[in-house]
Design a protein around this nucleic acid. Structure first.
Lengths: 197, 197
DNA sequence: TGCCACTCACTATAGAGATAGGTAGTTTGT
DNA sequence: ACAAACTACCTATCTCTATAGTGAGTGGCA
């Protein structure tokens, strides 16, 4: 059910079309909650049906139209209620750690490759997180900028610091994962013999 | 599809009934890949159908029977192939970090409670991980003990160290999460005013 | 003898999520 | 004039996961 609230979170910054949402998603909320557009469009429909959103049909070009969604009062209430309700705990489900526990079954070469891929994926992810963190800190992040317009200037620091806090948590997780993979590579070399030997 | 390989991993230690699997699961593999028994039983059936497992009906008491699953040759091959294939990347999907990014919408009290619950959940989880790590290190972990019987004594250290490596990764993640939640609590106190004031 | 906790195995159902499409209009460049 | 790329929205299907059950056998103990 968190997708619904991820969408609400995004739409509290400004009204958007489904297309906007699916584009913006990848640049902000998706770092925390990934979703493809085939999930987003139907969910927006359901949210409108449930009264959390209302839509306005906006002309687009000569014949085209688009549907702009805005959060309703009831949507804001639902979002606040979710914010104040206990966090749902996600059970561990990590193929990488599962594999790591059984590395004695892997070819040494394959083990190394996989650890490298894992490290590289997280390194890339980390770079993206740090880039986004920087745009939040200097307030050049477009969605954040739109969001701050609704607030008094004295509130800005507080809002930005929560976003930074969330990204810092993600960055810590990424760094932890990278460090672990590095240690794994050393371990594989030690136990399976370095490939250079 | 990782459930299938998590089950294979467990069953390589010794043949087990579905019930054994669902019990053992919670004490070992579940730290890495959680699954309820309603997923385990059907998956074991499918794995037998696909030739990865074979089952023997074992009498149990006077009238009862149970079904014991053992990994087949083809199951071992499939497991090795999976071990040597690239890790599937799991997209971020973390309600806690999603919420953190929008804490300006929460009641200060609720924010504190949620961060405390998050910290406490991970603290408990960490304790369990550390306890399991200790039983792996001294080789008193029952599944590990059964597993080592298949191997030459000179291999034991290598096998144990990979398990420890996996648990160390999970422990690092847990510690990182706890430290982040602690910083969050300080941040909320700073931004929302300490409740003692 | 009756009860309870546990062992064993499974089903039913609904929702979430991944993957892969389809269709129609618009803008931009050549 | 036409193609390519982008905007916009949606569907279909399959798998995965969560939740909540069912029902029968066993072993102990009061």
């Amino acid at each position: 059910m968190s997708l619904r609230f991820a969408l609400l979170a995004l739409l509290t910054s400004r009204p958007m079309t489904g297309y906007d949402v699916s584009k913006q998603f990848s640049q902000s909320v998706a770092h925390v909650w990934h979703a493809p557009d085939s999930q987003i469009y139907p969910e927006l429909n359901r949210m409108e049906r449930d009264g959390l959103l209302e839509s306005a049909v906006v002309p687009w070009g000569k014949k085209g139209t688009k549907k702009e969604y805005a959060v309703t009062e009831s949507g804001v209430t639902a979002f606040r209620e979710w914010m104040d309700s206990p966090i749902e705990i996600r059970r561990q489900r990590e193929p990488a750690y599962l594999k790591a526990a059984y590395l004695e079954w892997a070819e040494p070469g394959a083990a190394r490759t996989e650890l490298e891929q894992f490290r590289d994926y997280w390194t890339e992810h980390l770079a993206m997180l740090e880039a986004t963190r920087a745009t939040l800190l200097d307030r050049s992040h477009p969605t954040l900028a739109r969001r701050l317009e609704h607030y008094d200037e004295r509130e800005w620091d507080r809002i930005v610091r929560y976003k930074i806090f969330a990204y810092d948590g993600l960055i810590d997780q990424a760094r932890t994962a990278i460090a672990w993979a590095e240690r794994g590579l050393v371990l594989v070399d030690e136990l399976e013999g370095s490939p250079v030997d």
